[in-house]
């Protein structure tokens, strides 16, 4: 579980996060939604410790990041996995090299133990024939799978995904979303996903946090989001025709 208390983040004069508080539960896919530029990535990078908020606190299962020693921070880091928007695979390494990298860096496992672990996670993300390919040689969907495999290879307690299905075709996007949700439940991870895609909300949303201009505009569950009266949320949700129809159905159901 991650608890966020009133965090603020600025870059120079630009106040990006203006006091966000929320909690993200274990074993659930927590979604952060909002328009481009609403601060989703900055928020996620604060949760990851890549950015340090000027004010507020973040507690990881009760541990306050800012009060930890260097050593404890490093240990906490190893409990986090991150899937970047563009996958961020190391392009000088093969698929296998990418997934093995955290193991080589931070464990004392033997080569064969590492190979077993890498095979296992690559199989888990349904990628079996790409071990020796380089990131530039595989499709965007496969790159995302490798990125997920790399993020979970150390058995993280927390998984962060920044727009995991951006740039993918709708079918692949759904597969990736489902994969993240399955992994979250299987390993009981606290998963936080940034997205501006309503399909993902429909597909895998459990808890949903709506950001607008660096503030929490709304939060709730998937069912609640289709019923809310919050104008900013409904504008966002019903920006697509499909969801306008879904809303219509809800309303008809109520009568």
């Amino acid at each position: 579980m991650i608890e966020v208390n009133d965090i603020h983040k600025s870059f120079g004069d630009a106040h990006i996060l203006k006091g966000i508080s929320t909690t993200f539960e274990k074993g659930k896919t927590n979604l952060i939604i909002g328009q481009s530029g609403s601060g989703k990535t900055v928020f996620l990078k604060c949760l990851l410790g890549l950015f340090t908020p000027e004010a507020g606190s973040i507690l990881y299962d009760g541990k306050d990041y800012s009060t930890l020693s260097e050593n404890e921070k490093r240990n906490l880091r190893q409990e986090m996995g991150m899937v970047f928007q563009g996958s961020a695979l190391f392009d000088s390494m093969t698929v296998e090299g990418n997934v093995k990298f955290p193991l080589e860096m931070f464990t004392k496992q033997s080569q064969s133990e590492m190979r077993d672990r890498v095979n296992m996670v690559l199989k888990r993300v349904n990628l079996v024939d790409a071990h020796n390919k380089f990131p530039a040689e595989i499709s965007g969907g496969m790159q995302k799978r490798v990125a997920i495999a790399r993020a979970i290879v150390m058995n993280p307690k927390y998984l962060f995904c920044d727009e995991p299905n951006s740039g993918l075709d709708p079918k692949t996007a759904i597969l990736i979303d489902d994969l993240i949700k399955e992994i979250t439940e299987e390993y009981n991870i606290t998963t936080i996903i940034n997205t501006h895609d309503m399909n993902s909300v429909m597909q895998i949303g459990e808890k949903i946090l709506f950001l607008k201009d660096g503030l929490k505009e709304w939060e709730g569950t998937k069912n609640e989001i289709f019923k809310t009266d919050n104008e900013a949320v409904t504008n966002f949700v019903y920006s697509s025709d499909l969801f306008k129809k879904v809303r219509q159905m809800y309303i008809e159901e109520r009568h």
């Binding site: 490093r74 880091r77 190893q78 961020a88 392009d91 955290p102 860096m105």
Partner: peptide, 17 residues
């Protein structure tokens, strides 16, 4: 620079490297 703009450096930092 390419590693910076494609977030590969962030990926290293996240891992604690």
């Amino acid at each position: 620079g390419t590693m910076r703009v494609t977030e590969q450096i962030d990926a290293l930092e996240v891992m604690g490297v």
